[in-house]
Design a protein around this nucleic acid. Structure first.
Length: 229
DNA sequence: CTAGATGGCCAGATTACCTCA
DNA sequence: GGTGAGGTAATCTGGCCATCT
């Protein structure tokens, strides 16, 4: 701490009548100069733009130039920093809110797109099942005719029940895969639909649990603003 | 060298007062 | 003219740090 600084500090308090008894409940202020002049404010603003804190020497110099007490300059800078910080916080809050709104709207759009795709998948799946059953019936009918005609020509005996049962067993097990040829792709499709059904996006409960806190949670290291990039 | 005293600066909260709608 | 809201200078409080003794 500098001697001059200490002197000016004490001087300013005494001089401006601001040295208060701490036991007093009400503070009284001098009515000499309530507000700084426009020029004083302008100069202080200019200095503040380049440096938000003043060196003791600079503070005395500025005070002298503007006709203020060093303590007044110090207090102005303190208050200015506080106001500036509040404004910065407001700005940051507005940016965060805008980002959040943007994120939420995009999320909503994607949610709808996904629901549409899920319905489309379900429709396709139903059609596939229908087509599969039609082909199976068609195939089993052909097998039934072929089997009964073959045995009759070989043995001269007619065993329709056995032949028919054999045909049905074949249809339900191995032949259907060979005949229809899409067993594997069908499994894949079914898995997609099942997974989509389990997804949080189709569950309104989970969607309702979506909140900004989780996104804005500073404890997470994930840069959420890059989520959509 | 270390510990306590002193004083300044800071942030944050609050007060007192002014201006304006 | 009275009043409430908002802005601003100044004060208070508690913590931190540097210097002195």
């Amino acid at each position: 701490m500098e001697e001059g600084d200490a002197f000016n500090c004490c001087f300013s308090e005494i001089n401006s009548g601001m040295s208060m008894n701490k036991n007093k409940k009400k503070m009284k202020k001098s009515n000499n100069q309530k507000r700084f002049s426009e020029e004083q404010i302008k100069s202080l603003e200019v200095i503040f733009e380049s440096e938000t804190r003043l060196e003791p020497r600079k503070k005395v110099q500025v005070a002298r130039e503007l006709g203020l007490q060093p303590r007044q300059v110090a207090i102005w800078f303190q208050n200015k920093r506080a106001r500036w910080k509040t404004k910065q916080l407001e700005k940051e809050y507005n940016i965060l809110r805008a980002n959040y709104n943007n994120l939420a709207s995009q999320f909503d759009i994607m949610k709808k797109e996904k629901q549409a795709l899920v319905s489309q998948l379900q429709r396709l799946n139903e059609e596939m099942h229908k087509s599969k059953e039609e082909r199976r019936d068609e195939y089993c009918g052909e097998q039934r005719v072929a089997l009964s005609s073959t045995t009759r020509s070989e043995n001269g005996k007619c065993e329709p029940e056995v032949r028919i049962n054999q045909g049905i067993v074949l249809c339900n097990d191995d032949i259907k895969t060979e005949y229809f040829g899409f067993e594997e792709s069908n499994h894949v499709l079914m898995n997609i639909v099942e997974q989509a059904d389990d997804s949080c996006l189709t569950s309104s409960d989970n969607w309702g649990g979506f909140n900004s806190d989780s996104i804005l949670d500073q404890s997470s290291n994930y840069p959420w603003w890059d989520f959509w990039s």
